[in-house]
Write a protein that binds this DNA or RNA. Structure first.
Lengths: 219, 219
DNA sequence: TTATATTTTAATCATTTGATTAAAATATTT
DNA sequence: AAATATTTTAATCAAATGATTAAAATATAA
């Protein structure tokens, strides 16, 4: 009857391609858009249904409840955000400096397309949405990364002055992510329009690695 | 009858001191706490009433509606946040570097006490809460400030390499504010507890001015 | 084609939630 | 103290909102 359609369909496997445009996927896409824009509390399931072009009952038929649908979207969002980070942080080939370049470049491109993701994730994490933080192994991911080892080495060799890897990580993430979180305010202050704002962000792809390097050496 | 009590009481003036502990002020304090923590959409007027230790009807008697109460809190929050900034940015006496030190120091202290303020403000501004951005003269405040003139001079004299004042402002705000926005995530990553996190933030009071200086000179 | 399973809808329910009302309690003025 | 004004409450309303149900429409299998 009301068994999770998702699991059923996934089991078929073969149809996976078709399902990308299926009703279920349509609902998820709509849910993603609305949740990202408004957050959990301000989102009405009716808005998701309307955005997906389906009946409200269908949403509950496929996902049982607003909360379950949200948990799926939240998990996918955090995963999507983290997996790129995980790849870069643990890449054997690249140097620390190259990793900084990659993170700046990848995330500025991602956030230019999806500027709501950071404030969505950080707001919901603050509300402890689904105790997600405790469930995911984010800690090990970052702390055991090659990125961190490289930072440690650079500190040992005296190439980086400030020894705390947290300051290093905070600075990188701050410079990349914050402008997108504050985008409406910053556009209000500057009078810049979206296109011009995005151009500023593109400049930061090159600037942030230079700045981070300067920060590392400064004392 | 249901005339705004606030205006009435303010007119008396003499009682202003007493009113700080009045019912109206108690409701506002509770509203501030709950709105800052949960945001407009997730806040229940009943929660505010409970937090204030009063009846729900009383909230509507004093403030007419959730939205009106919110608008007051939002305005006061933004004002409280901006006025310090305005003071520093337009101080005649201080140099650009001293302004950076002041902003870092003042806001790290403020946000250590009230870490929810940035994500609250920026979330609600993103929802265009009350079209607040258009109403407030934030643009002139920042763009016509002495801070900006000093930045311009420094660029002209070649003391600052990157000419865009927006990058400069973004970098400063990013380094100061972002860690508080991402605090739960960062604590999850690092395993640090609140006290240790706050110690890191205190370190940044001294570090950020050094880093900003390094950024300015880097090319 | 008929029968069965799946998908979708319209209508409705139950709860939550912002707001109101009329009356009670308290304070203030005369 | 009596009269009046102010503050607070309990009870209730109305709209919004998440969820369910039974039936209709559509697809799939026999």
């Amino acid at each position: 009857m009301s068994v999770n359609r998702s699991l059923y369909k996934m089991a078929k496997g073969k149809e996976a391609k078709k399902l990308d445009t299926s009703t279920e996927e349509k609902i998820k896409e709509a849910a993603r858009a609305v949740f990202h824009k408004k957050g959990y509390a301000a989102t009405r399931t009716r808005d998701i249904a309307a955005e997906a072009g389906i009946n409200l009952a269908l949403l509950n038929y496929y996902f049982r409840s607003k909360e379950k649908l949200f948990d799926i979207i939240m998990l996918e969002t955090v995963f999507g955000f983290m997996q790129n980070m995980a790849m870069v942080l643990n890449d054997e080939k690249s140097s620390l400096e190259e990793k900084v370049e990659l993170i700046a470049s990848n995330y500025i491109d991602l956030l230019t397309k999806e500027p709501n993701i950071p404030i969505f994730m950080l707001s919901e994490i603050r509300n402890n949405a689904g105790g997600l933080l405790e469930k995911l192994p984010i800690r090990q991911l970052v702390m055991n990364s090659i990125f961190f080892k490289q930072h440690q080495e650079a500190v040992a060799k005296g190439k980086i002055v400030e020894p705390s890897p947290m300051h290093f990580l905070m600075n990188l993430l701050s410079l990349v992510i914050f402008p997108f979180i504050a985008q409406p305010l910053l556009q209000g202050i500057s009078g810049l329009h979206e296109t011009q704002f995005n151009k500023l962000m593109q400049e930061r792809k090159k600037l942030i690695p230079v700045w981070v390097k300067a920060i590392m050496k400064s004392k």
